[in-house]
Simulated assay, not measured.
Amino acid sequence: MNPVTSAVSALPKVVARDVNVFYGDKHALKEVSVDIPDNGVMAFIGPSGCGKSTFLRCINRMNDTIPICRVTGKIEIDKRDIYHSNLDVVQLRARVGMVFQKPNPFPKSIFENVAYGPRIHGLCKSKAELNDIVHYSLEKAGLLGEVKDRLEDPGTGMSGGQQQRLCIARAIAVNPEVILMDEPCSALDPIATAKIEELIDELKSNYCIIIVTHSMQQAARVSQRTAFFHLGTLVEEGPTSEIFTNPKDKRTQDYITGRFG
């Protein structure tokens, strides 16, 4: 089955072919095929329950944690099948960072929140190296200036927007290649949301970023490509400007113009 996509300019980072997801007898995701380019942002949009978060969670095999869930088809990152039996899922989840809808810092200090991943993955040989990784990650997440004098304070004591940027710093700290964001701004106020969007814009040159969002305005602001899901099917995918101004499928048109959703 050919992907519902026009050719992407660069080699794709993530390639999905005929991906199906079943929760018991429920067929939640149907024959999804798409190429996701590197160094940019792809947005998944669509009404609630359409399969966009389900597909996102296939990319770091988070659906493995659900006993009744079964995934078929193929997903490759850099041409390597991430569902192959000899693939180390722990290593995969280091390469594919995840930022959730609700900020979820560990009940540890700001420093330890960011240091945790590099430490357990053995990414640093000394305390000085770990210190550098923590500072670099906080800086990349646009947070270092706000917290550099209180790195020993608990991460849970920060504002919601700061907590979400801390979670992004935590994801960056293990040197991922792909960052998945599942509605990362839905629990945040407009000012915090603007900061996260600025951060996504800065990070896109170094990472493949995939964001699930209910906000079409957000998708239009932050992404270069958009995929529209409906009833478990990927209806169409293409450059964000085209999806929003000249969609090929009537279902996309109806969703974007507010006829359903």
Results as ranks from 00 to 15, higher is better:
residue 1 M to P: 15
residue 8 V to R: 07
residue 14 V to H: 13
residue 14 V to W: 04
residue 14 V to C: 08
residue 26 K to A: 14
residue 38 D to E: 14
residue 41 V to Y: 12
residue 46 G to Q: 00
residue 48 S to D: 06
residue 48 S to Q: 09
residue 52 K to I: 12
residue 57 R to Q: 10
residue 58 C to H: 06
residue 60 N to A: 10
residue 60 N to T: 04
residue 64 D to E: 01
residue 68 I to Y: 14
residue 69 C to H: 14
residue 73 G to T: 02
residue 74 K to L: 01
residue 75 I to S: 12
residue 76 E to L: 09
residue 76 E to T: 10
residue 80 R to K: 13
residue 82 I to D: 11
residue 89 V to C: 02
residue 89 V to L: 01
residue 99 V to R: 11
residue 99 V to E: 05
residue 105 P to A: 00
residue 106 F to L: 12
residue 109 S to I: 06
residue 109 S to D: 07
residue 109 S to T: 06
residue 111 F to D: 05
residue 112 E to N: 06
residue 115 A to I: 10
residue 117 G to I: 06
residue 119 R to V: 04
residue 124 C to Q: 02
residue 125 K to I: 01
residue 128 A to N: 12
residue 130 L to S: 05
residue 135 H to F: 12
residue 140 K to V: 00
residue 148 K to M: 10
residue 148 K to F: 14
residue 149 D to W: 07
residue 150 R to C: 04
residue 153 D to N: 07
residue 156 T to K: 01
residue 157 G to E: 07
residue 159 S to T: 07
residue 161 G to W: 04
residue 165 R to G: 01
residue 167 C to I: 05
residue 168 I to Q: 06
residue 169 A to I: 12
residue 176 P to F: 01
residue 177 E to A: 02
residue 179 I to C: 04
residue 180 L to T: 11
residue 181 M to V: 12
residue 190 P to H: 14
residue 192 A to Y: 10
residue 197 E to S: 04
residue 199 L to A: 05
residue 203 L to K: 08
residue 203 L to A: 01
residue 205 S to I: 01
residue 205 S to L: 06
residue 208 C to L: 10
residue 212 V to Q: 08
residue 213 T to I: 03
residue 217 Q to F: 10
residue 221 R to Q: 02
residue 223 S to R: 15
residue 226 T to G: 08
residue 229 F to V: 10
residue 229 F to I: 09
residue 232 G to V: 07
residue 232 G to E: 09
residue 244 F to Y: 08
residue 250 K to S: 00
residue 255 Y to W: 06
residue 256 I to V: 10
